[in-house]
Nucleic acid binder design. Sequence first.
DNA 1: TCGTGTTACTGGTCAGACCAGTAGTAGAAA
DNA 2: TTTCTACTACTGGTCTGACCAGTAACACGA
Lengths: 255, 255
Amino acid sequence: MMNFEPIKKVNSYELIVEQIEARIRDGELSAGDRLPGERRLMETFSVSRSTVREAMRVLHATGVVEPHAGDPRGSEVIPFSPKTLQRPLARMAHQEGTSRAELIQFRLLLEGQSALLAAALCSDETKDEIESRAADLAELAASDSADAVEEFGRVLSAFHHAIRLASSNQLLQATGQAVDGALTEIARQRLDDETHGLARRGRLGQSAQDAAGLAERIRDGDAAGARRTATENIYRFYRDSLTEAERATLEPLVG
Amino acid sequence: MMNFEPIKKVNSYELIVEQIEARIRDGELSAGDRLPGERRLMETFSVSRSTVREAMRVLHATGVVEPHAGDPRGSEVIPFSPKTLQRPLARMAHQEGTSRAELIQFRLLLEGQSALLAAALCSDETKDEIESRAADLAELAASDSADAVEEFGRVLSAFHHAIRLASSNQLLQATGQAVDGALTEIARQRLDDETHGLARRGRLGQSAQDAAGLAERIRDGDAAGARRTATENIYRFYRDSLTEAERATLEPLVG
DNA sequence: TCGTGTTACTGGTCAGACCAGTAGTAGAAA
DNA sequence: TTTCTACTACTGGTCTGACCAGTAACACGA
């Protein structure tokens, strides 16, 4: 069994990236620290500035570093942000082959578990925050302002966001937010269909009520109930726009 | 309320990235297609090659494009890969301790829901595949080959992969794989500690048994049972390496 | 028909230059 | 003395133009 190593053509800029990332892992560099300027780096690494530059581009693109043009202190090492995950997730969601049903299925699952964790673990202040969002929804549903529907969508999104935040899990938060974003964007793109918007209009009250029920279960620390309520609400929200087969793939996650 | 737009300093290379990503989203470019060469791109975008180059670096770093040096056909647009998520996830987990628990929490949740969906929806052939992996594990646990432990890790990973595949959800599959990968990478890096490896060695039998039990529940279509078993198995796997507080954040998801 | 060498490209790297913009400081104004 | 201002010496962003090692494809000879 010829057990050779696969040859890896190493590009110089990747070596620089690795060295800097290693320094961060080892704690020699941490968020807030400044990197030497590009001209200094080209000397310490014995490469041209283009090469240093490409390394910096990669580090910037992956959310490791933030450049500060004009600042003599050089680029800054920044802390991890969920936004780093959001980009690739959005890309994946947009990709051909990822069906809308899968997206909804994934959302159902994420929001359900978020609600569960929120009910089980989060603090009273956070529960206040969630209930406050639910109250916002009720108020909006009662109003008959012209753009209440659109505003309702935003506030509903904020409500779910608060729950994800309450789950105290950054990953859940980032993925949930990404999926939410992807779905609303798809909705916006496909909504030449006026009826859907109008249909939602008729259900604002229902949605607000759902949210209130969910907030209450989270308040009570009823983890299982919160999960069930969250999934049921979301399922109801999408049900009418799905085919029979699609519903079948969602139902195992509901209730 | 002065409602001005926040100014966005746009770097040229970012505009190029956006244009190319937009083309991909709109389906005008898709996996396998080739981008024009850098010299061609600098003309079409009216920028210098450095700028084109930095754009390409970003696209490459975010897993959108694969360069082929020397190939006259230019860089290739590649399909989405979970590896794209794996890097930022690993980085996030490396940060200040706290997030390892989050990673495990997230994994617990993903694998649990995967098992649930697999049990509820997947075909008989897929169930065969899962049971076959479980059998591999049992065989390995019984053997006493030198590198059985390391091999066991790989096969265990394959077992979970099969379950995620059976969930028929690409998002679940990709995120699950990324989290799995990130966790094993962390384990590898922190494993100066020999004892952990040895401890696992003592538990190969247990793990294989767990897997068999999970496979059986999936075979039976026992969705709730599959979810419970999957979470319990994973929880047991990590329990001893966690603090009391970390365990508390995981327990709501178990059982 | 089948190798084979040439060729015209590719991406990776280098060098050196200019620009707009910022932090910090030295000096002018109060 | 304090406050404001102009300057300076840097920063990152962009450009130009060049060389290299490597590859795909094609024309060519066997």
